[in-house]
Computed example of a mutant assay.
Amino acid sequence: MPRAMSHTVSVVFEGRNRSPVKILLSTDPFPDTGVSGRLMGTYQLSLIALIQLLRSVRSRSMAVIPDQKVATAVSNADAPWDEFDSQWYADHNYGEIHPDDHAVISRVGRFFATRAIGRKRHAIDVGSGTNLYPALAMLPVAESITLWEYSASNVRWLEHGVRPYGQLWDPFWEALRESAPMYRRFQRPRAVLPAIAKVEKASVFALPEGLWDLGTMFFVAESITGIPTEFELATRNFLTSLRPGAPFAAAFIRNSRGYHVRDLRFPAVAVTEYEVRRVLRPYADELTVEHVAPGQAFRDGWDGMVLALGSRNRRPRP
């Protein structure tokens, strides 16, 4: 049943397990209470109960959102991730290398070739989905690569897709070879990737802190939810999963209004360079954020990509 904005407001904060928690503050004296979702807890409380709860929680992130806005947005927990058609998505988005992908790959390749050389690193690609080019970009400087993915269908795709990867990814590797000599010197990428890659079925909201010293996250945080605070939490979790000094590359669909995978609709948060920079800046050094314009419209409802490059700082800024 719809709730009037004059009677409720939503408070979203980060819980103890780093999952987003949504509280519906109600003016009703005895509101119903319920919990829903795998990652998102939803509680409807009276004002007195809310005050008592907040006193017992040490929250690092809190935002007050009008209830109507939250009610119309799809949370990460509410999207049908296990029904995601992975092969369709791979064919539709990566069946050919698009100009904006080529531009992003070139920039990321040059960045890693100058910032990640010198030693082999333990790397992570967060929310790999059916996209192997972030892992390929880290391949020459990685001792291990963790492919961190939540969707069961994407996990199955990854487990087969990297052993070894198909010819679909050859143009993406060629773009990396064009970007820097490091990739031209690297031998047998098709054999090396399955040897060092490990698929981990887990949520971005469950990332541990400070384990990896190289990282990528491409088209994930803004494309797994319609709720801005979940986008921010996912982005922050990616950065805090890295060790101080770890180089990273993160890419975001710019101003996405959601997307279809066959007949299923998936949520998104519309972000620009401003939102990406604001969320990343407290956790990054030497941060660059730029708009990569779309080369062709193979999907409606967006206007290019936002690419962020930098390194994890040692102490978060306020």
Rank of each mutant, 00 (worst) to 15 (best):
L50R: 12
L50M: 15
I51C: 12
I51T: 14
I51M: 13
Q52D: 09
L53E: 02
L53D: 04
L53A: 09
L53S: 05
L53H: 08
L54S: 04
L54V: 12
R55V: 10
R55F: 11
R55Y: 08
S56H: 06
S56Y: 00
V57D: 06
V57I: 15
V57H: 05
R58V: 11
R58A: 13
R58W: 09
R58Q: 12
R58C: 08
S59T: 15
S59F: 07
S59V: 14
R60K: 09
R60D: 12
S61M: 11
M62E: 08
M62A: 13
A63M: 08
A63Q: 13
A63K: 14
A63L: 10
A63T: 15
A63S: 14
V64H: 00
V64I: 14
I65N: 02
P66D: 14
P66A: 13
D67V: 08
K69Y: 04
K69W: 00
V70H: 00
V70L: 12
A71K: 07
A71W: 02
T72G: 07
T72V: 14
T72M: 11
T72C: 05
A73Q: 04
A73C: 07
A73E: 02
V74I: 12
S75N: 00
S75M: 01
N76M: 08
N76L: 07
N76C: 06
N76A: 09
A77D: 15
A77C: 08
D78M: 14
D78R: 11
A79N: 04
A79R: 05
A79E: 05
P80C: 08
P80G: 02
P80A: 02
W81Q: 03
W81V: 14
D82Y: 05
D82H: 03
E83V: 02
E83S: 06
E83P: 01
F84C: 02
D85P: 02
D85E: 06
S86G: 05
S86K: 03
S86F: 00
W88V: 11
W88K: 09
W88L: 09
Y89N: 12
Y89W: 15
Y89M: 13
A90H: 07
A90F: 00
D91F: 04
D91Q: 13
H92V: 12
H92N: 11
H92T: 12
H92F: 13
H92R: 15
N93Q: 08
N93Y: 10
N93G: 04
N93D: 05
